[in-house]
Simulated assay, not measured.
Amino acid sequence: MTLLAYIAAALAEIAGCFGFWAWLRLGRSAVWLVPAIASLSLFAYLLTLVEVDQAGRAYAAYGGVYIVSSIAWLWLAEGVRPDRWDVSGAAICLLGAAVILWAPRTG
């Protein structure tokens, strides 16, 4: 459930942020802000579904998933193929997120 919530949250956040990007940087209509705001609200809700007791830890681990999702967006939505540095950096971040989320804790 946690991984699905993170992936859905990343898609919602990227889509919402892109709505603002399209409005401010690409000269699109302000109407783009309506789905952007809805998408960012969905993002915030989805992070509450993560199965972890501390919000800060959920947000920190989410950062790695967001970075990987952003690199995927770069390739799939913007048509820019990630280079080895993009892929290496994203892998390091995802590993860090896994450590934060699933490290054994003693209390």
Rank of each mutant, 00 (worst) to 15 (best):
M1Q: 09
M1H: 05
T2K: 03
L3I: 15
L4Y: 09
Y6R: 03
I7H: 06
A8T: 07
A9F: 05
A9N: 03
L11Q: 03
A12Q: 04
A12T: 06
E13M: 01
E13I: 02
E13P: 04
I14E: 05
I14V: 09
G16V: 08
G19T: 12
G19D: 11
F20A: 11
W21G: 00
W21I: 10
W21N: 02
G27F: 06
G27N: 05
A30S: 15
A30T: 14
W32R: 12
W32T: 14
P35D: 06
I37D: 00
I37H: 03
A38Y: 01
A38I: 12
A38L: 14
S39Y: 04
L40H: 09
S41Q: 12
A44L: 12
Y45H: 13
Y45M: 09
L47P: 02
V50H: 03
V50N: 02
V50W: 02
E51F: 01
Q54L: 15
Q54M: 15
A55P: 07
A55H: 07
G56R: 04
R57F: 08
A58W: 08
A58V: 12
Y62T: 11
G63K: 06
G63A: 14
G63D: 02
G64W: 03
G64M: 02
V65S: 07
V65K: 03
V65I: 13
V65A: 14
Y66K: 06
Y66F: 14
Y66P: 00
I67H: 09
S69A: 09
S70A: 13
I71T: 05
I71V: 14
A72F: 09
A72V: 13
W73C: 10
W73S: 06
W75M: 03
L76R: 03
E78P: 00
G79Q: 09
G79R: 12
G79S: 07
R81K: 14
R81H: 10
P82I: 02
P82M: 11
D83N: 15
D83K: 07
S88C: 01
G89Y: 04
A90W: 04
A90P: 11
C93T: 11
L94D: 00
L94T: 05
A97E: 09
A97C: 12
A98K: 07
A98M: 07
L101I: 00
L101R: 01
W102D: 00
W102S: 11
W102T: 10
P104Y: 01
